[in-house]
Design a binder for these strands. Structure first.
Lengths: 148, 148
DNA sequence: ATATAATAGTTTCATTCGTAACTAATTGCA
DNA sequence: TGCAATTAGTTACGAATGAAACTATTATAT
């Protein structure tokens, strides 16, 4: 007879989710507390900062958010004047999203903060470990995504 | 002049949260779809499976859930007959939580499923990488927790 | 002994989130 | 052309979540 035992502290999904939650909370302090940007909005902003002019569907794809969450974030951000929205000439359904001047200003303030935080976390690891982690996260991502 | 650039696909917090979400969704299929156990309830169950008789506060601590979430999960689980609750003799505020026979039965069905899933994911990695990942996750956890 | 503080847990309320149903625009095909 | 199917995005609604206020019990300090 085998004993059924699950040690949460050693269980990969639990450990990942724990880390993710703590890091998410720390990051939220950087953009929510200081700039009033909600998590979903920050993710949209992060996409538009690099890929100006894309549609809501592209944002959803790049952030792995669902389209409802993206739609809501976008509407808030238009409200806040962080982005502008027009519609594509060749397809009036498709939105064309861009950071406004204010949005880009905010983006450029937030990016160094979150990058500094990331660096801080990564500094807990040696260079070799950082490289390993990269490789490992890529492998895990491929593995879990394929099974979707 | 430095360009402000944040590549989401290379940003550690994003990658972790992506992985966590996909894995969480996969796992939920194992316990929610088949046994009607919600995420919060599964986490409580995982603690009680190993540590029978602990209080709600201990469950909250071990799962990193907040006490409101634990309270609700516990009430659902009492409703579902998955756990029993008494109160400690020496402190009538403190609950004493145990899996019921039904609860343990369910637990013993779920554990092998989630362990098989974890194994599946870990099989994407070599043994050496699995060891590295262990070490790295421990380091990261210590690093982020200390800054709380 | 009694008042105050602290602790365990619950309830309330406001927000967030996701699924499903919906509208509007476009595409495909007969 | 014209009708069905698809796609982009929004709205509506129910479930999950979190912060704050609350109840009940126990610990502490005078």
């Amino acid at each position: 007879m085998t004993k059924t035992n699950l040690h949460l502290e050693e269980f990969l999904p639990y450990r990942l989710s724990y880390l993710t939650n703590v890091i998410g909370r720390d990051l939220a302090r950087l953009y929510t507390d200081k700039f009033g940007i909600a998590h979903a909005e920050w993710r949209v902003m992060a996409v538009l900062g690099l890929s100006s002019g894309v549609s809501a569907a592209i944002v959803a794809e790049k952030t792995a958010m669902d389209k409802v969450a993206v739609s809501r974030a976008i509407n808030n951000m238009i409200e806040n004047k962080h982005i502008s929205r027009t519609f594509a000439d060749d397809d009036k359904r498709r939105s064309v999203l861009k950071l406004s001047d204010l949005g880009r200003e905010t983006y450029e303030k937030i990016v160094p903060l979150v990058q500094a935080y990331e660096k801080d976390v990564l500094n807990a690891l040696s260079n070799a470990e950082q490289n390993e982690l990269n490789k490992i996260l890529n492998k895990l991502k491929d593995c879990v995504t394929q099974s979707k």
